[in-house]
Design a protein around this nucleic acid. Sequence first.
DNA 1: CGGCGGCTTGAAAGGCATCAACATAAGTGG
DNA 2: CCACTTATGTTGATGCCTTTCAAGCCGCCG
Lengths: 217, 217
Amino acid sequence: MSTLYPCSQCSLETFCSSDTSFKAAVKERHLNKKEILHRASDKFSSFYVIKQGGLKTYEIDSNGHELIQSFYLKNEVYGYEAIYTGHYLFWAITLSETIVCEIPYQQFLELLHAKPALLDRTLYLISQQITAGTYLKFTTAQQKLAAFILDLAARLWSQHYMLPMTYQDIGSYLGLATETVSRIFSSFQRKKMIHIDKKYVYFLNIEKLRQIASGFE
Amino acid sequence: MSTLYPCSQCSLETFCSSDTSFKAAVKERHLNKKEILHRASDKFSSFYVIKQGGLKTYEIDSNGHELIQSFYLKNEVYGYEAIYTGHYLFWAITLSETIVCEIPYQQFLELLHAKPALLDRTLYLISQQITAGTYLKFTTAQQKLAAFILDLAARLWSQHYMLPMTYQDIGSYLGLATETVSRIFSSFQRKKMIHIDKKYVYFLNIEKLRQIASGFE
DNA sequence: CGGCGGCTTGAAAGGCATCAACATAAGTGG
DNA sequence: CCACTTATGTTGATGCCTTTCAAGCCGCCG
């Protein structure tokens, strides 16, 4: 179904292929759908580059419900957030069949010291994540959802894609009820802004979506 | 009023004082209240360590209203988020009289290559910011506000402190109306969880606040 | 084919925004 | 230093948006 993200397009490829000992330390892991990558409070020792599929991170609230923290998709790097505590803060589970490159942090750090360009690249990638999900603070459900699917389009580099997660996950991530997600998507379709067929999203009026995401109407 | 954060407690002190050329590049700047540090889309060339006071970052929405992005307080580092685009994404303005150390990024990078310990420290500090403000996705206003004032207490290392920003700013940051912020704070006071006197917050029942922040009631 | 997870739709309740009016604090200029 | 002006915070009434609860449908997987 989904295509494998080639090493040649990986954001760390230059370094991975230039250093044999580093490349040897990188392990490619194939995971099934809904396979747990790690638990909350597991010790942090590696981060991951996602070559195919995707994953979600979440915590369990006092009522036993999943609280989605974030999504990580193809070609994105996951795990930087755990550097500062030394252990993961959330659970991580795959959304679909997924392939990741597991990169040991200690060996990565050594390479970081040796290769200035890698350092620049890494700071670039981490910096990017600080402002991720800024649309979470939007007030209306419309705004959040419009911004969310536009964000996915940007991250997947396409204006038609399969939603990698359930409506329940989207709702939890945005702080909305599942029913609200469904209703707003329906209204977007009635207004001919998108078309959804079996979790596949097609953008019909991207300009209108951008307007709604930025607070018009 | 507010005390100056001494260099000896700064998270970058070791490096600043160990390297004379680096120290020479660091400029201390004194800013008045509501003084603009930079605009959105200004070129990124320095980040800042806040020695006293604090600042907020924001964008202007399509209706001309401020949309608060984040707050940065004493002893925190601001600016990492701009590394990846090379320019700032938001406006930054001081909340009160503020002293910052302006650190040129290029010179910082050079020192980063030379000093492994600084690299570790920097990754630690940046990593920390990725998960900042996770409570923004909470559903109820109570939850958001309880989590917010607890977050401030942790960042200011005190259970009684002056709110550095207006209720309007808090509301914009959390996606709430100013009136809602006022009302919820009043209800917290009626329930003897906090006491507020002229923007000064005192915690009376921190356990109850934690419960509300984590979704009880 | 049956069961279950995920999505849809409706009705009702409740939380929060909005509007408005006022109170208080802070800042400004004479 | 006081009078005025502006910014900020409080409180009430109303309406809307979103949640909640309930029921049913659909598609997938064993």
